[in-house]
Amino acid sequence: MIRVEGLTKYYGPHRAIHDVTFQVGQGDIVGFLGPNGAGKTTMMRILTGFMPASAGSASIGGYDVYTDSVEARRHIGYVPEHPAIYPEMRVSQYLAYCGKLYGMSWPQIKDARDRVVQTCGLEERYQYIIGRLSLGYRQRVCLAQALIHNPAVLILDEPTIGLDPNQIRQVRDLIKGLAGEHTVMLSTHILPEAQAACERVIIINHGEVVAEDTPEALTAQLRQAQTVLVKVAHASGTVPRMLRDIPGVTAVTPVRGDDDAYYVDTEIGSDKRSEIAKFVIDHDWGLLELRAIEMSLEDVFRQLTTEEKGVA
């Protein structure tokens, strides 16, 4: 549904994105993850036809976003990072206006408006003047205008920014509910968001794709080491050094704030838990806890983006 090939964008001499290639299938929810300034918004603006790329190509539903821009835009619902909507208009007026710009007839607009107002929970604010709405509601109006023409592709740039935790959950649930029928691409710098809402994550840093997979596979595949947490009853200064001597153990670091617990990193692909348990019991340190630590997407993200920084 979305196809991006070798996309590059320069702002003057500054390179915002470089040679980005990916594809998004129909009905997928894909997260575009990266720190602030990574090129997410640039990417979204190119996809929505707001600005052209410097090189490369992108298409939405088979329509090139540059050469066939108007047709491509017909199939996109877009929520920009800053939901700047005409503050003097009423919600109902604004949605009707957007419907008109999407070429919908009046009966279609009325039906669609009722539908999106319900989907986005705007029933009570339907006749409000947009300028008087809270940020959360304005975000919903923005989402509603993106859905009014029932687009094949939804592009959401940081859709939960500035919302309170309840609203964030609502918006995420809403996005999840849209999957299947719509192809969703959302950008975020918040990891739990990508983890919670997306089936696939594309991690971007300094304008380049550094990783792309499901959140689970990404965490599993990209972890550099498997880590085991060990907590003992009778710790002593020699414990870390002795644990380090177990074959296959690469590093031992004390857990901050807990003198009796250690993170034991082991070689990739090896499960050293039984050896570690046996070792602790043999030395009579009093094994209290032993478990494998799951690396979160956050760790992967930090690892990838800091590594990248080292290269640059």
């Binding site: 835009r73 920009p80 999407y102 205008q145």
Partner: peptide, 14 residues
């Protein structure tokens, strides 16, 4: 200035 142009120019309008 307000940024609302982004929503306008990403609509299917020339």
């Amino acid at each position: 200035n307000s940024g609302s142009i982004e929503l306008l120019m990403t609509k299917p309008v020339r």
